[in-house]
Every structure is written in C-alpha cells, then in structure tokens.
Simulated scan of single mutants.
Amino acid sequence: MKTALVLGGTRFFGVKLVQALLSNGVKVTVATRGNSTSSFQGQVESIQFDRNQLESFQSAFNGREWDVVFDQICYSSIDAMNAIQVFQGKTKKYIFTSTLSVYDLLDKELVESDFDPYSYTIELKDKDEVTYQEGKRQAEAVFFQKAPFPVTAVRFPIVLGENDYTQRMTYYINKVIQEEVIYLRNLDASMGFINEDEAGEFLYWIGSYDFQGPINTCTNGTVTLKEFIKYIEEATGKEAKVEISSDEDNQTPYSIPRSWTMSNQKAIDLGFEFQDIHQWLPHLIQTVLKK
C-alpha cells in the first residue's frame, strides 16, 4: 500500500489510522466535510466534500486513484451504494469501518458468521430512516453484494481512548467522583472493547493484508461491568453508588442486560497481536482522570 484515502480521519481513532499510515510511509489523502480541523496539516492532502450530495461526492474524487480507501463515515445502504459508484475503478481495496452492533444481543461470544451480509436483504434507505444497527448492516450488505472491488468490513466493539468524543467512559468516572448513582441492568454482564491506538493500527494492518470479508476486531479479554466500575473506584479512591434497574429512564451508556462480546480469533489467526484489556484499561482510566 503506497497511497490511501481516508474518509473521515480528523478525530478519535481515525486520527490514529492516519498516524499509522504516515508512520509506515503511505501517502495519505484525508477527505472530510471540513467541519473539523486536521492535525496533519502539511503531512496529508486534504479534500473537502459532502457525502450527502452525490454530485459533490463524485466531483471531489474525479480522476483520482488510491491503493486503499478507508471509509470511517458510512452509515447506510445509500452511503455504501454511492461509494461504489464513486470509487469503482479508483481503488484496489475498500476498508469499511463497521461495528459489533450488526449482531443481535446474543448470550454468546459472537463470531463473524452470526451476521451474514452476503445474504441480507438490501433496502435502499438513508441513515436518518434506519437505526445505527440497521444502517451498518445495510452498508455491509451493499458492499459485499454489489461492490466490484475487494471489501473488508472491520467490526469494532466500543472504542475507548483519551480522544473519545462520546465521553461514555468519562460519564462513569464523573458519576463516581461526584458520588452520584449509576444505574445498570446487570453488573455481571461482560463487554469487549478496543483502544483507539489499537483500532488505528489494525485498520492500517488489515489494509496491507490480503483479506476480504467481515472481521471482528477487539482487544484480548473482556471485563464485567462490576470490574469496570472497580477499576474506576481504584483510580478515584471513591466507592461507586450502583443501583440495578431496568427502568429505561435510568439507563446509562453501558447498561446491557447480558454479555455483549465477540471473538477476535479470525484476526489472531491472520497474525495480528492484540493487547490485553486488563493491562491497558486501568491505565487509560488513570490517564483520563488526570486530564
């Protein structure tokens, strides 16, 4: 991979992807709506476009080619269909950032075959007409059933990091510090995560690897919500006030009724070495706490 186009890439683990590409000598183009300032001024080529306007989408990339396109901002079947139209003949490979959310919440460790985008019925709808889960399912279905170029769908769990703009982990840290009640459905439910650095590195790595299809990408190990809260208690020196509740009005970001994890064995078999969650998560909580 000598050239890469990143759709998105100005925040969170998109930044980590661009860093990984640059560190490995890849010539990078970053394309965004221009609403966020890139931290790579002078290091990457920048393109401004509006994905929601097909004419803008087409004209922005007219006459250009890249070895790999990384799509961080595709949320619907229409997004995916337009991308196929725009990038047909312009790339050797397409990496689509997908999600654990394509799976139903099954009480098992999820594997790639638990959602099959190759047979999923396509319905052309905009992202505002579907849920986040359905939008990502539809995007995968379109790419794998319609794209004329090789596609990889990287299914991430919740991504954590210092630059997490969702502030979901910070929400829990602040609740403990302020001695406010945290409502959860099930303290024994396990979750899988990945950190922003590892997410960016994996995207670069799989872009350099000869692989097509969906692939689960998560750090090694899982944590129960009880363990997650305990790590925060240890970092803050305060005891969390937790109440078990199924009331929808009281629910918090990670309040799941049962475990939500997936297997990363396929990625491991391909040769990627993941970190261990119990090593980096406590350190990350300490780092966020100090900011």
Results as ranks from 00 to 15, higher is better:
214 P>G: 03
147 A>C: 15
249 D>A: 14
229 I>Y: 12
243 E>H: 02
257 P>N: 07
176 V>H: 09
265 Q>A: 14
252 T>E: 13
202 F>E: 02
200 G>P: 05
155 R>W: 07
230 K>N: 15
185 R>L: 14
261 T>C: 10
260 W>I: 07
136 K>R: 03
145 Q>E: 12
222 T>F: 14
141 A>N: 04
248 E>F: 08
186 N>R: 09
266 K>N: 10
222 T>E: 14
128 D>H: 07
223 V>Q: 13
240 A>H: 01
172 Y>C: 10
224 T>A: 15
251 Q>N: 06
131 T>D: 06
151 V>I: 09
208 S>A: 13
241 K>H: 05
260 W>A: 13
141 A>W: 01
180 E>M: 12
263 S>N: 08
155 R>Q: 06
241 K>Q: 09
191 M>K: 12
213 G>T: 14
250 N>D: 12
218 C>W: 04
224 T>M: 12
265 Q>D: 14
148 P>F: 15
202 F>A: 01
263 S>M: 02
201 E>Y: 10
240 A>V: 02
193 F>K: 03
195 N>R: 10
162 E>H: 02
134 E>Y: 00
157 P>Y: 05
229 I>N: 08
244 I>R: 06
261 T>M: 11
149 F>A: 11
200 G>W: 05
185 R>C: 10
220 N>R: 07
245 S>E: 14
160 L>V: 12
138 Q>R: 01
234 E>F: 00
194 I>M: 07
261 T>Y: 09
153 A>L: 03
220 N>L: 12
155 R>I: 04
162 E>F: 03
192 G>Q: 09
127 K>R: 14
202 F>D: 02
189 A>H: 01
145 Q>H: 11
129 E>G: 02
231 Y>W: 15
168 R>E: 15
235 A>D: 12
126 D>E: 09
193 F>A: 12
